[in-house]
Nucleic acid binder design. Structure first.
Lengths: 323, 323
DNA sequence: TTGTAAGCGTTATCAC
DNA sequence: GTGATAACGCTTACAA
């Protein structure tokens, strides 16, 4: 049995049927497995992709990592996660480590606006558009904002507000507010906005709300928050102010996060298709012909009631779990 | 400049100061980085560890993966996660893939009682004791159960119950109930138990609770649940039955999970030291002398009030966030 | 201290 | 269809 022919068998390259069987048998008996490192050295393909995220424990990133891992596994790839803790310098350091680690590509979700990516290495970004050469996959944030406005207005809201926190660096998620405000304006519904940044702390929303209290009642009847997390915090503040949700004011968040990862929603929300996001990212990353990939893929979002909106009777309560 | 000497420089092996500087400079200019695959092929060390978990999106596993990733990164290692979806067969498949992937070790959290691990490869288990040759790191589940009992009794509870769901295969977590019951008995406080398995569905707890309703009041004043998730479900059921928490019955869960990963607790709880768990696991895995590792390491847990217990006035509300 | 050469386990390119 | 051989980029004795 010659080495070269054994290699062919292990790689599924046609070889004499009898020979093939004997090799397989011997491999089985000896517990032989191809050494991925030797193979990688020779072929320059490692069947490994990197995932760069700020954290693995925050629910959205955890869900994303989970789905990316599954999608890669399904394609015979492994995932190496790198966590940046929202630190732009750490993000750049990850890019360097990735070069060292000889991965075949990377899916990145970063907040460093001037990240230097290796033009040789396939990259896909999530929620952040870099350039036409780096495909970006994101939820339809603009459409999600519109959808939130539509749902609130359908449910009787006439004085709306948009609240956001998030990174200072511009990203696709900023379009949530744009879609929301645009829809409100097109329907002639008054809308206000308060856009803060992460460092600001959620307590800065309290003055905004307090200013809009008139005679013990809130002068708003619908609020769209840029994330479920923010919606949760706002609900807490409102409870402290004696404002009832959803009776006095209805609230819609964004993300579709669930308690314990798979139990109830935290609030009525615009759900991001996390699995689809991951699968699309992996597909774009691993596409054979990377010369003409779309610069941007926008995935449809959906609305799910989660207790912070007044639902029409026939709609029932929250419908189904999981995606 | 000879190849071998360059290698020495890249590995920090002493070499002429002047020479070293020149090599570093050249490497910088050419963007040279050591090829990890060639190095791994030669040295048989890959600076990579595997993590086997049921999921990356469930909060506890997500937190664990996050901390393990950080701990490995700090030691110059990378993590390759494998997700098993609680499927024993998938768990075994992961063990096979790990062999193929030539990792230096693996941290595993599985539910396959008769997993065949490679005796050559360093293993560490979380929450499941396999054998004296495989170190197991877990929280002090027994002590946590005792602590829960102590806290409930301190707060005036005199009719206690322990509720659990979880995997059918025995693990360290089973000791939570043992510790709880033991403490109650030693204090002469009556205690009941209902131990179900994962497949059973949480609705099977409802009859247990309903049977203990006497004249619109629950004949229990303290409940210890094996996880925060179960405590959450039980709270929901009790609310549906008109029982108030913590006024009528006080509840303590186990895990210390937080909403959105870092916000409020779901309930008063026994907190697992997730970061310590991860760091200890990594330390054991990467120990130079693996010949005499402890077969078992138990990490201390702590109690944190989260709204489902009546706290003495001076204790204040929930103390501090994070670990 | 520096340079040389063997070899790690593959795959790819040849003759056969 | 099969078997020999070079090369992938590195580490590590060992020789200079």
């Amino acid at each position: 049995m010659a080495l070269g022919t054994v290699s062919k068998v292990m790689n599924g390259i046609p070889v004499g049927e009898d020979y093939r069987r004997r090799v397989r048998q011997a491999a089985e008996k000896l517990g032989y497995q191809v050494n991925n490192y030797a193979r990688g050295l020779k072929t320059n393909r490692t069947c490994t992709a990197a995932l760069i995220v700020p954290s693995l424990s925050h629910p959205f990133f955890a869900a994303l990592a989970h789905e990316v891992c599954q999608a890669l596994t399904a394609r015979g790839y492994r995932m190496i996660p790198f966590v940046t803790s929202f630190d732009p310098e750490a993000e750049q350091a990850c890019i360097r480590m990735i070069r060292q680690n000889k991965v075949d590509g990377a899916i990145v979700l970063t907040y460093n606006p001037n990240l230097e990516v290796d033009p040789e290495l396939p990259f896909v970004t999530i929620d952040r558009y870099f350039s036409a050469t780096v495909p970006c996959v994101s939820s339809d944030n603009f459409g999600g904002g519109q959808l939130a406005a539509e749902r609130l207005i359908e449910r009787g809201c006439r004085r709306l507000a948009f609240l956001r926190t998030g990174s200072r660096v511009p990203g696709e998620a900023d379009k949530r507010g744009d879609g929301f405000e645009g829809y409100c304006r097109s329907r002639g519904i008054p809308v206000e906005s308060l856009r803060l940044n992460d460092g600001d702390g959620p307590e800065l929303f309290a003055p905004f709300l307090r200013e809009r209290m008139e005679g013990g009642k809130l002068a708003l009847d619908g609020i769209f928050c840029s994330t479920d997390r923010l919606a949760y915090d706002i609900c807490g503040m409102l409870a402290g102010m004696g404002v009832r949700v959803p009776e006095d004011v209805q609230i819609i968040g964004f993300d579709g996060m669930r308690k314990f990862g798979d139990a109830d929603l935290y609030c009525s929300t615009i759900v991001q298709p996390v699995r689809k996001l991951a699968e699309t990212g992996v597909d774009l990353l691993l596409a054979e012909d990377r010369s003409q990939l779309p610069a941007m893929v926008c995935l449809p979002v959906s609305y799910l009631p989660g207790g912070t909106t007044r639902e029409p009777p026939e709609a029932g309560k929250e419908l189904g779990r999981g995606q």
